[in-house]
Every structure is written in structure tokens, then in C-alpha cells.
């Protein structure tokens, strides 16, 4: 597998940005300054980044309530995201949406989503646009093992096949839908579900960037080539609760610690690229330092940014009135 230096550095930077962004939110949320609730993507970085490494700004993705990572992987500006999470006028959604609704349609990011199973049907539509507009783009639905049990998701698998859409259904399987284990809540297997709808199935270790990159490349190539949809089943683990404040008593002691110790995508990435001499450690260190100051700056800017004004309340309910 050949990966360009550019993709490697960009991907590492994305993963590091997601990690630092989320770890920082974990700390900042606990101060009570961030309104509402946030769901963190720590531990799952390689999935969003490995998939989005194959996409351009004109490909479309739909995300979930755990959407910060997908946003960053698709190139949404960190400063605008942070401001949004702080409810500021300068946020990517002008403080109207918050953590669960970050979107940037100019970058093909169709939004994080507060509704489990909200994304897959939308991605059928996005893929239909790409197909009928013949723009050679693909549409990617990210969703969890929990959402894989929503009727809307299962209907979308069917529809995408019926219409032979350029869509990829990425099941980010972290083993838990909220506080309930996938081993209880998911009947059968994702593989058999894909087979049931007649679409090719790919799976990979979602904590290994290179595995995701390679497998996602195959799934996306299939969809882009006009052969219809594919399913990509990514096995991974989330390091924080379903939402911030979740004590995770439904997980055994040490489960997360083990994941952090053995399956840290960033640590493993660094190890691999130095072993095979793909990137120099100094380059990675430089990225780390860069990202750290970028996140620091984003938090400072968000806290200092103006709040929405009264008139913003009535703005943008419709395009025209």
C-alpha cells in the first residue's frame, strides 16, 4: 500500500487534532462553561480520518451525535467548531446548533446529528444527487452499532442497493449503544446484514489508521466506480462515556485503560511510521506542538467571541419569508 507523505502528515494532524480537541472538551465541559451536552470521539480517531482521507470537499458525509471527529476529518475549521460548542455567534452554525449539530455544507459535511439513525437516509439522498448529477462523488454515512438497529438505517441499506447508489455505510462499532452492549442489542452480524441487502462488506480494525485507510479505500472505490453501495464495518472503542458525565458503570474496570494502553491509534501510528521510516519523529512532534497551540487558540477565541444577538433568534428559519 502506497500512501503519500502528504496524506500521512495530513491524517496524523487530523487524528491529533481530534484527540486534543476532545481531551480539551473533556476538561472544559467539567467546568460547567459549555452549555448542553457533548459526546466525545476519543479512541475512534483513525476511523473518521482513515475514511475521509479518500474524500474531497465535494464528497458528502453524514455524521452522528458523536460528530466532532468526522467534522475535523472532513476539514471543518476547529476555531469555528469550538466557538459553536461554546454557543458563540462566530460558531460554524452561529451558536444555533451546538455540539450535536455542527455542519459545513461547503465541505460536504451534512451535519452531526441528534437523532440516532438520522444520517443513513440523508446519505441515500446525497448519493442520489451525486449519481444523477454525475459528479463522480460518493456519500458516506457514519453511524454506530446502536444506529444499525434503527429502521431508518435498515431501510437505507435496502434503498441504496435498489437504486445502486454511490454510498458507503460505515458502521463505527464501539460495542455500546449508549449504555447497552452491542452483543445484546444487535441481532445477527453486520456482515450478514450487508449480505442480506446484497452489498459488499468490508471490515477493519478501527484503531489502526493503516487498516482503515486501506479497507475504506476499497469500499469507497467500489461505490465510486458505480457498482452500488458498500458497507464498512469498523471495530473500535470509545474512551469516554456516551456523553460527558456518564460514569460508564456498564463497562468493566480496566476496559478503557486497556484500550488506551494497547490500541491508541496515535501511538501506533507514530510507532509504525518510524519503524518503516515513513515520517520523521520531528515532523510528528512539530504537528503535535502546532495542534496544541491551535486548540489553545480556539478555546481562547471561543471564550472571547461575541454571543449571538437578539435578532439572531428569528434569522434563518426560512430562506425566504
Amino acid at each position: 500500500m502506497q500512501i503519500s507523505r502528504d496524506i500521512l502528515t495530513r491524517s496524523y494532524r487530523s487524528m491529533r487534532t481530534i484527540r486534543d480537541f476532545e481531551e480539551r472538551l473533556h476538561v472544559e465541559f467539567a467546568t460547567g462553561e459549555i452549555p448542553g451536552f457533548v459526546h466525545l470521539y476519543c479512541g475512534e480517531e483513525a476511523s473518521g480520518v482513515g475514511v475521509c482521507a479518500h474524500l474531497t470537499d465535494t464528497d458528502t458525509i453524514a455524521s452522528t451525535h458523536r460528530g466532532h471527529g468526522h467534522c475535523i476529518a472532513k476539514g471543518v475549521a476547529v476555531e469555528g467548531m469550538m466557538a459553536e460548542i461554546y454557543g458563540r455567534q462566530t460558531g460554524v452554525c452561529h451558536g444555533k446548533g451546538g455540539s450535536m449539530h455542527i455542519a459545513d455544507l461547503s465541505l460536504g459535511m451534512l451535519g452531526a446529528n441528534g437523532i440516532v439513525g438520522g444520517g443513513p437516509p440523508l446519505i441515500c439522498g446525497a448519493a442520489l444527487s451525486h449519481k444523477l448529477l454525475k459528479d463522480n462523488n460518493v456519500a458516506i454515512a457514519f453511524y454506530g452499532d446502536g444506529a444499525s438497529n434503527e429502521g431508518s438505517t435498515l431501510e437505507s441499506l435496502n434503498l441504496a442497493t435498489v437504486w445502486q447508489l454511490p454510498a458507503v455505510f460505515v458502521v463505527e462499532d464501539n460495542g455500546y449503544g449508549e449504555a447497552t452492549g452491542a452483543s445484546y442489542a444487535c441481532a445477527g452480524t453486520q456482515k450478514d446484514r450487508a449480505a442480506g441487502f446484497g452489498m459488499p462488506y468490508f471490515e477493519c480494525d478501527g484503531t489502526d489508521f493503516f487498516a482503515v485507510y486501506k479497507t475504506a479505500g476499497e469500499a469507497i472505490a467500489h461505490a465510486r466506480s458505480g457498482k452500488g453501495p458498500a458497507m464498512l464495518h469498523v471495530h473500535l472503542s470509545r474512551w469516554y462515556g456516551h456523553f460527558e458525565g456518564d460514569a460508564m458503570s456498564y463497562r468493566a474496570d480496566g476496559e478503557v485503560a486497556k484500550q488506551r494502553a494497547e490500541h491508541d491509534c496515535l501511538v501506533n501510528f507514530r510507532k509504525y511510521v518510524s519503524e518503516v521510516s515513513l515520517l520523521e519523529t520531528s515532523v510528528l512532534d512539530e504537528i503535535d506542538a502546532d495542534v496544541k497551540s491551535e486548540i489553545d487558540a480556539a478555546v481562547i477565541a471561543a471564550k472571547a467571541a461575541p454571543l449571538p444577538e437578539d435578532a439572531d433568534l428569528m434569522r434563518d428559519v426560512y430562506v425566504s419569508y
Binding site: Y176, A179, G181, Y184, A185, R251, A252, E255
Partner: peptide, 9 residues
């Protein structure tokens, strides 16, 4: 909550 998990019910 906790069904199918590795922790408490």
C-alpha cells in the same frame, strides 16, 4: 442500561 456490557447491570 448495562445489558450486553462488561460492567454492572
Amino acid at each position: 442500561g448495562g445489558r450486553g456490557g462488561t460492567g454492572v447491570k
